[in-house]
């Protein structure tokens, strides 16, 4: 199976896994900035998430939220099995390659 995942998509997908139950766009922005030490705009994350959902790597449900969001619902993302397989395969491919890297590197 072929998975086309961009670097940003891959990171966000991983972050969705890391965030467990609370993976929504703004939380992911904060996590990304914290872990990756880079700025990212809300709308970019939003676009990436939409794309991931379209590709079937994540699914989402709308959750009620309170005052902290001004009463607005939030969309919480969960990784799908396809998504899991995709990042696992990427990880495995990377590891395989890393194992081939000579010691002198």
């Amino acid at each position: 199976m072929e998975f086309s995942l961009g670097t940003l998509e891959e990171s966000i997908l991983l972050l969705v896994v890391v965030a467990e139950e609370d993976a929504y766009a703004y939380a992911l922005v904060k996590a990304y900035e914290e872990h990756m030490n880079k700025k990212l705009s809300l709308s970019a994350v939003h676009a990436v998430l939409t794309r991931l959902e379209k590709k079937g790597f994540v699914n989402s449900t709308l959750h009620q939220a309170g005052e902290e969001r001004g009463g607005r619902k939030k969309r919480v993302f969960n990784i799908t099995n396809t998504g899991k397989r995709a990042i696992e395969e990427i990880k495995n491919n990377r590891l395989r390659l890393w194992n081939l890297v000579p010691q002198s590197f």
């Binding site: 766009a25 922005v29 709308l62 902290e68 969001r69 607005r72 619902k73």
Partner: peptide, 12 residues
């Protein structure tokens, strides 16, 4: 998608 966008913006 209005709610999620506006909610996220509000939190930020």
């Amino acid at each position: 998608i209005q709610d999620e966008i506006l909610g996220d913006l509000y939190e930020a």
